[in-house]
Design a protein around this nucleic acid. Structure first.
Lengths: 122, 122
DNA sequence: CGGACTGCATAACGCTGTTAGGTATATAAC
DNA sequence: GTTATATACCTAACAGCGTTATGCAGTCCG
């Protein structure tokens, strides 16, 4: 994208690698930002990744609703005097624990991937 | 699985995180093993990951064919005097270059994930 | 008044891995 | 001899995901 890539197969596999981390990125963003909303999450991840991860809103909003349904997040609407209504999200206590577990899994996967791909630990 | 996990949501997100790396794991296995075949790839990855990554054959064989169609891999059958016929795969020259690129992308994603999740580099 | 940015939502689509089968040989256990 | 396990490959049906495309709507700038 920013580098002159144009290999469709490479881009496809890149998307696949990234997409598995979206849910974790979003939860982490909510943890970092405190009470926050979809659009801000997208911007936060984009900025944090140096512009390398650009989530679509059609990716983020369903994930937020999905987590809300499962009590990982909770949400509420605000009606500001000026501007559009916003739907805010924050981690529930269960969600906080869940994010910790998921983060451990991520670390574990990282070490497994390093073993397979970079020959560490053997 | 081996640890007493039984949180379906956690398992689902774990699967998603892992699945994005399958193609890369398989290509890396072919690079490491030289001429090799599906069953051996599954065992190699399982052993290399300390039993944490167990690919299904129904996952691996379609991926091998997919890469073969795109000239990343090439394949040939062997008819041993004893045992079952095997379909061997190896990297093509293009495939070798492609794997290098993909490996760079993986390293890049890893660093981006660390920036977002572990607060490195900021 | 038009464009860019903000802010949320849903439907249709394509692509993946999973699940669940099928076929087949070799070997060890009972 | 028959069952179980390991080896070795394949395909079809399904569920789930992100992408694409589209809609609505307020704010701000030129």
């Amino acid at each position: 994208m920013q580098s002159g890539e144009s290999n469709p197969l490479r881009e496809k596999l890149n998307r696949e690698m990234r997409s598995g981390l979206y849910a974790l990125f979003i939860l982490k963003a909510v943890e970092e930002l405190g009470d926050t909303y979809g659009y801000e999450i997208v911007k936060y991840i984009e900025e944090r990744s140096g512009g390398r991860i650009k989530l679509r809103d059609a990716t983020v909003y369903p994930i937020l609703r999905y987590f809300t349904k499962r009590r990982v997040l909770e949400s509420y609407w605000t009606e500001p005097d000026v501007g559009l209504p916003r739907k805010y999200y924050r981690l529930t206590p269960d969600g906080r624990r869940f994010l910790k577990e998921l983060f451990e899994d991520y670390r574990d996967l990282k070490s497994v991937a390093e073993r397979i791909l970079e020959g560490d630990g053997r």
